[in-house]
Structure formats: C-alpha cells, structure tokens
C-alpha cells in the first residue's frame, strides 16, 4: 500500500475516533443530566455553597465563604500556603474599602 494511503487511513481513523468520542460525550451529557440534577438538588436541599474540591484547609474547602483576609493571608495576590490556593483567585468583591497596597 502507498504511504500516502496509509497516512490518510490513519488520519481518517483518528478523526472517526474523535468524532465517536464527541458523540459519546453528547449522549453521555444527556445521561449525566440525572447525576447533575441529583447534585443540584442536594445543593438546594442542604443549602450548600461550594464544591468539595479542596479539603486541605477550611478556606479552600469553602472558597466562596472564606474570610476576606484568607486564602491570601500574606497579601491579596500572594501565592498561597496550600497548593490548592494556587488554582483560585482572590475575591476582589468587597475589597474596595481596603487600603491600596501596591
């Protein structure tokens, strides 16, 4: 078989695999609606405020509820002590009344 044919076959195979994955994703998204609904219902029923992503410290567990001086204890934009702090952004809302630090 010619090398160009082999290349196109492999490219078509990859495209088909990707399309199948995307198609599966679209179908799975519909089936996962039930799971999403369950999570949303639990949030509403128990009045939860945050995702359980980082449980290493109280202010990373409940990012939206953390004190304004945490999770950025040293400086509003300083790098965090806990690794997960590196994935989050300080809440700038409500910081307007603070002194300009820079």
């Amino acid at each position: 078989m010619r090398k160009s044919s082999l290349f196109f076959y492999s490219l078509i195979t990859e495209l088909m695999v990707l399309s199948l994955l995307l198609l599966y994703g679209a179908i799975d998204k519909n089936t996962q609606q039930e799971s999403l609904q369950e999570k949303a219902m639990l949030v509403e029923t128990l009045q939860l405020t945050d995702l359980c992503l980082f449980t290493e410290a109280r202010y990373t567990r409940h990012l939206s509820q953390a004190d304004l001086n945490t999770a950025f204890q040293d400086h509003p934009v300083s790098l965090e002590h806990f690794p997960s702090g590196s994935f989050t952004q300080p809440s700038f809302t409500g910081m307007g009344s603070h002194e300009q630090l820079d």
């Binding site: 980082f54 449980t55 290493e56 997960s84």
Partner: peptide, 19 residues
C-alpha cells in the same frame, strides 16, 4: 496530585463532557 494538594480526602468524580 496538583488538585489534591495536601488533602487526605479527595472526591472521586467523573466530569460531564462539556466539549
């Protein structure tokens, strides 16, 4: 490992494919 950080308890979750 990066998301887990130093936490001992990390949720097992599968994400909904929003692509």
């Amino acid at each position: 490992p990066a998301l887990k950080g130093w936490s001992a308890l990390y949720p097992n979750f599968s994400l909904t494919p929003f692509v």
